[in-house]
């Protein structure tokens, strides 16, 4: 009898979570319980990192420092151009009389505390949570491109569903042609671009960026690069494979975007 009750309860819970998404607070409570265990489980790998880092030579650190300074200089120079371009767009929009909107995005820097890439899901944990005003559906990027979106939060941490997870879908467009499609994760750091008609002019190496449709991901952020294009005989669409641009496995620090739309009248 107990087995039947437990079995039915588990099935009901699955249905409620899968179809109704009613159990956000339950998952949040479970994740909060798991937080100290996650920290504990990382101690061996952190110890290993600490020991190996201690043996990094001063020369290597100096070289890295020099490299970072150069990169910072280049980025600052680009930012100046970027600011000019933003003003230029504003002026042009004013001349055209369009009701354009400029998205002012505040960002928060977070550190990746936990990364998982297993056959069941692809996600990572960040050290920022509800206490830092992190909410579900906020977009996470690294210095290269989109990594994923926040799906669960606890007071001190949050979970990010990576764009390579099979449950993740992202409205995108090809940067070169503007062709729209849906970018879906296929697991194990691979992606597929769906709903691209056979007559589209795609090339291997084309950059796929977010289209801004759907209202979650802001437009114009690079997400993936096309690696393979296959034409299937009986299918109306192309089979397009891609790889994420963001360093899903290597990134240590990431940015959490909090979108704020300001009307530009």
């Amino acid at each position: 009898m107990q087995f039947v009750v437990a079995f039915i309860f588990a099935i009901a819970l699955m249905a409620a979570d899968h179809y109704g998404h009613l159990l956000g607070s339950v998952r949040s409570a479970l994740l909060t319980t798991l937080n100290p265990i996650e920290h504990l489980a990382q101690i061996p790998s952190q110890l290993y990192e600490t020991v190996t880092q201690d043996f990094t030579s001063i020369d290597e650190l100096r070289q890295e420092n020099q490299k970072l300074k150069t990169e910072l200089l280049l980025i600052k120079a680009k930012m100046q151009q970027h600011a000019n371009m933003e003003l230029e767009i504003e002026r042009l929009q004013a001349l055209l009389g369009t009701t354009g909107k400029i998205r002012n995005q505040n960002v928060q820097i977070a550190t990746i505390t936990f990364f998982s890439s297993n056959p069941l899901s692809q996600f990572l944990s960040l050290n920022k949570g509800q206490l830092d005003n992190i909410r579900p559906h906020q977009v996470v990027i690294d210095d290269q491109g989109i990594m994923g979106q926040i799906i669960d939060t606890t007071p001190t941490s949050s979970r990010v569903l990576l764009i390579s997870d099979p449950d993740h879908q992202l409205p995108v467009r090809i940067q070169r042609t503007g062709q729209r499609g849906i970018l879906t994760g296929t697991g194990h750091d691979q992606l597929t671009l769906r709903f691209i008609p056979k007559n589209s002019s795609l090339q291997i190496g084309d950059i796929i960026e977010s289209s801004g449709m759907g209202g979650i991901f802001p437009e114009g952020y690079p997400a993936a690069k096309i690696t393979q294009i296959n034409e299937l005989k009986e299918e109306p669409y192309l089979e397009v494979l891609a790889e994420p641009i963001a360093k899903l496995r290597q990134a240590h620090k990431v940015l959490i975007l909090s979108r704020q739309e300001v009307a530009n009248d």
């Binding site: 079995f7 309860f9 339950v26 319980t33 998982s116």
Partner: peptide, 18 residues
């Protein structure tokens, strides 16, 4: 707890364990 850990549908691991 394993469902939360693996980020799977809540109840899926519970069902298997049961």
């Amino acid at each position: 707890l394993l469902d939360a850990l693996y980020q799977t549908t809540l109840g899926a691991h519970a069902l298997q364990f049961i």
